[in-house]
Write a protein that binds this DNA or RNA. Sequence first.
DNA 1: CTTTTCTGTGTAATATATACACAGAAAAGA
DNA 2: TCTTTTCTGTGTATATATTACACAGAAAAG
Lengths: 221, 221
Amino acid sequence: MVNSEITNVYVTEDSYECTVTVDCAVFGFQDGVLKLLLVQKLSDLPFKGYWLLPGGIMQEGKTAEEAIDDVLFKLTGIQDVHHEQVHCYSSVNRHPLKRVITICFYALVKPENHPIIRKKHEKGVEWFRLDEVPILGFDHEVLKKDALQKLKSNVEERLILGELLPEKFTLTELQILYEALTDQKLDRRNFRKKIIQKGLLKHTGEKKTGVKGGPELFELK
Amino acid sequence: MVNSEITNVYVTEDSYECTVTVDCAVFGFQDGVLKLLLVQKLSDLPFKGYWLLPGGIMQEGKTAEEAIDDVLFKLTGIQDVHHEQVHCYSSVNRHPLKRVITICFYALVKPENHPIIRKKHEKGVEWFRLDEVPILGFDHEVLKKDALQKLKSNVEERLILGELLPEKFTLTELQILYEALTDQKLDRRNFRKKIIQKGLLKHTGEKKTGVKGGPELFELK
DNA sequence: CTTTTCTGTGTAATATATACACAGAAAAGA
DNA sequence: TCTTTTCTGTGTATATATTACACAGAAAAG
């Protein structure tokens, strides 16, 4: 039991501690399509057999950000990914058996950089094309929807693309990504104008070889 | 101790429960300026005497949203306010004495609708003009900054004004508010065009009396 | 060296944002 | 009641941003 007076201005009734979990919608971009990494719940009801966003308990001494790193590594072998916080979910009955609150993140990765290593399961860690994602268990449909929305607005507003681009990239590479992530199709010339005037890119003067047309390479400022 | 296997896909090491607090940046609009409601920490170190965003422990069986309602009511007497979630803060040392994570909200109210009732303190609950807010204790400077930014973007993008407007209002009333909340000055004619084409307003056909010019009243759709 | 497929660019048309001034309505004051 | 004050409501010209659209040149592929 915590001494609830410690913080003084906090209400002074009985304290309460709660299990905190972290979940992460890991989006992967591969073969020109957006995918979502899911983990299957193999054990007991409820939601036995359902697919879920990877998630786990926030351990003592860890921030939520560290916790999600740990959880992703332990469940899927994925490491060193940039993530953004989406929302905290605290409905009392979001888990049927036990009160847990969840802090949800999203991450954006290249699947080929992160071979899946099923540390805790023999099966049940898979990439799904976004248009083929099964119905998720618990309230993860909501988490998925909110994460996707946050992803899109972060890409449109701030060009937060995680590790999806190499350090130097062509505008066409950027456009393919941008279109897939924001789910729209743009004219090449107009995209170039729009993206350049955001002021987030820098010319390198270099050209990419091995590709027709000899496109110029850019990098993020 | 929780059975950490319950959720199956969650990591299976020892579980951990954590005190969860909720804090709220309550913004008030009065006399044409934006104010922030703060509570003074009267007891012990650390941060004795510092002003803080009102906050408290999330009690068992409450969602974070319910918890913030409870906390605000108990600390300040404020009830029935709309709030928006801002972020969840989980640094391990954000509270020097005890691990607590905080879910931070903001709310937007008319101070005159909410007479302060200091249920838990004899003094130390006050409205501050935003440009006169003292340095806050714990990490509440960060919470304040993030809340203010979220407030502005919610107002600009979605015209979320809490209870600040009466049901029917004139465009000038709306403009004064909008300008104060987003911290900018706009031309009246241009504001009208911009705000009407957002498509969130509805003409009522009625005019406001007791004010020169006989302005038309609008309402939210 | 010919073909293919990519890149890079400009302009006209439209929509949006900004700057700016005057006439009419209602209240306030004489 | 009538004159003054102060508010409201509106339009247009300019600049800026968005959209639509086509062809010449670069590099790889054959």
